[in-house]
């Protein structure tokens, strides 16, 4: 037993990916909490952006279910339109964005649209929202997904949000300006692109998880970077910041 949950570890791992002063597309749930932790610890000058037309310094005080909820607008740095906020992406002014998805493949491409054939899908997923725009135009992408074999697949059925496409320099050749996925945080491990193919490699394993288990739950032949680490446990300061935000212990179990 640890004094933190898996989800809390994921939040803190995500928070560590945010640098001070950066402008970040945040999203709901786990990423917004990670953003809050980063602001309270090592990145007090980070700025959070929300597709609907909101920019914030401090995260919302009260629980929000959508980016459009009142507490996310009260005391915002800017409430405006979608084009004004998402245009910052196209203008190359956003450092990083968080996205999740139903499926990710070994080149970091994400599917949130169709499982199976587009014409007769087995599952029609809700769709993209602004994720393709973030994946294409943010300087780098932080991905959070649950680590299951049917989610981490060899090749996604539909690329909603581009990672490294077919690998190598395919992303650059397609005209995408951002550097693409730089980290994938799961409930078992942390993956990062590695080597000339930009294939996702195992970079760190969370405490209490094993290499065999991570490989077993990955849908492609997962390789490792030369020195795989164990994910650093949350520090007392990081946990204190998280508890300050997550007053009701939503992420504790």
């Amino acid at each position: 037993m640890h004094d933190y949950s898996t989800q809390e570890l994921m939040i803190i791992a995500a928070a560590r990916e945010i640098n001070d002063g950066e402008r970040i597309f945040v999203g709901m749930r786990l990423p917004i909490t990670a953003y809050g932790v980063a602001r309270l610890t090592h990145a007090p000058n980070a700025v959070g952006l929300f597709e609907s037309g909101v920019a914030r310094y401090a995260p919302a005080e009260d629980m929000i279910y959508t980016m459009c909820d009142g507490p996310n607008q009260l005391g915002a740095a800017w409430t405006t339109g979608l084009i004004q906020i998402m245009g910052l992406l196209s203008g190359g002014r956003i450092h990083a964005g968080f996205i999740g998805g139903a499926e990710i493949d070994r080149f970091g491409n994400i599917n949130t649209s169709y499982i199976g054939d587009i014409a007769a899908p087995k599952v029609k997923l809700p769709g993209s929202g602004g994720a393709p725009d973030i994946a294409a135009m943010a300087e780098r992408l932080i991905i959070i997904i649950n680590h299951q074999k049917h989610r981490l697949v060899e090749k996604v059925d539909f690329i909603t949000s581009p990672g490294f496409l077919d690998g190598g320099d395919a992303r650059e050749r397609a005209g995408l300006s951002g550097a693409g996925p730089q980290v994938v945080i799961t409930d078992r491990a942390i993956l990062r692109p590695h080597g000339p193919e930009n294939e996702l490699h195992l970079a760190a394993i969370h405490p209490d998880h094993t290499l065999e288990e991570v490989i077993e739950n990955t849908g492609w032949d997962l390789k490792s970077i030369p020195e795989v680490a164990q994910t650093a446990a949350p520090s007392a300061e990081e946990l204190a910041a998280l508890h300050q935000i997550d007053k009701e212990g939503f992420w504790r179990s």
């Binding site: 992406l89 725009d133 294409a136 539909f158």
Partner: peptide, 13 residues
């Protein structure tokens, strides 16, 4: 003319 959906299969679908 947009760049933000380059690489997405949305362009094909």
């Amino acid at each position: 003319p947009l760049k933000s959906i380059l690489g997405s299969d949305i362009v094909k679908s």
